[in-house]
Design a protein around this nucleic acid. Structure first.
Lengths: 199, 199
DNA sequence: TCTTACAGTTTACGCTGTCAACCCGCGTTG
DNA sequence: CAACGCGGGTTGACAGCGTAAACTGTAAGA
């Protein structure tokens, strides 16, 4: 495929396509400008004609990831049923995305912040739409909703990132683990406890 | 400090000390063999006289981290009180460690597996002592305990890693968030639900 | 035909982890 | 005393990284 020469915006598209392919097939660690360039049939520096930096290229992939994640989560919340049912569905959609697209999940949520130049504020806002969905469905007052939604998010994120990193004991039934973790997260966010019950 | 020449095992200790210093003060991203070497007063290749690779050096730091984490968590579980109180204490100890030693937490739990040569199996077992503590304190049957302990761990890990990565909304009261997240995690692990209640 | 603009390349810099070869001082041995 | 081996440490190199600066070739406009 190293002979498919492209020019202009075709080249930009080819670079992005190749970056996506490498990301999904070999992971973020294998993503290098030179590798992409040689696969696409141009030089590494040509990438800078269309992307400000390697990080900017990765940002474009991150955007794709958030688009899919948000679509999935919002579709899940849009269904019929009581709020707690829809929260469960949203949680499941989040986890499913993470497990089905681990490489995307990695660059979206598991990349150290310092090693990545700041993700543009405007894109960052878009990136939080799924969190907002969690918050709304907890049915708390706006400020408490943010807290409880964040706890749900944290639980799901912990679950997904441990599973992706293969740190969870292999003897565990993964689907049961996921199911129960979602149950725990949702139950904790919904029931009683407006804030902290005591002390 | 670049003039403090050391030899023999002193050099090994100096390398480890410097690596620890850089890790805590500048983070994992700033950890490079040449930087350590110049600070310690030797060449980068000299590091390979005492550590098989850079990863092996980082493994040594990871071991230190697990030693401290396990000590803290086990101390917390060793106290008096009902199991659910001790589980809460263990959870708090885990989170406190993560927030007080973010750089250690990062190399212990947030480093991508592929980018790191396999952590030795024996050390890996030691690394899981805190998880075992969580499991025992849930008071479930052995197999269910592993699952529920893992869910507690996942919740705490999600919380810590999001906080470390500064992905949590700054308007949130961090200590309240931590408190409630711990509460949710522990409550979910202890109460009813031996496995999954329905379906 | 001359000029301008732009797409893309060449070259280079400084950084990374790591290997192979060398070098020098010490302890032992003939 | 001299020769030797050995081990800690250095030098130099390789292959890879992201990226900036300078260059080239080509197409369009005047």
């Amino acid at each position: 495929m190293a002979s498919t020469r492209s020019t202009g915006n075709d080249l930009q598209r080819a670079i992005l396509d190749e970056a996506r392919r490498v990301l999904e097939e070999q992971g973020y660690g294998a993503l290098s400008t030179r590798r992409i360039a040689s696969a696409v049939g141009c030089t590494a520096t040509s990438i800078y004609l269309y992307f400000q930096s390697k990080d900017a290229l990765v940002h474009a992939l991150i955007d794709e990831g958030f688009e899919e994640l948000n679509r999935r989560v919002l579709e899940a919340t849009g269904g019929p049923g009581a709020p707690h049912e829809r929260l469960r569905a949203a949680a499941r959609a989040y986890v499913d995305f993470g497990l089905e697209r681990p490489a995307y999940y990695e660059i979206m949520f598991m990349l150290r912040a310092e090693q990545m130049e700041r993700y543009p504020a405007e894109a960052y806002r878009r990136a939080r739409r799924s969190l907002e969905a969690f918050c709304e469905l907890t049915g708390h007052t706006p400020e408490d909703a943010l807290k409880h939604g964040t706890i749900v998010w944290a639980t799901l994120h912990g679950l997904v990132s441990l599973l992706i990193a293969r740190r969870v004991d292999v003897s565990l039934d993964e689907s049961a683990l996921v199911r129960d973790a979602i149950e725990t997260a949702c139950a904790g966010a919904l029931e009683g406890s407006p804030t902290t019950k005591d002390a």
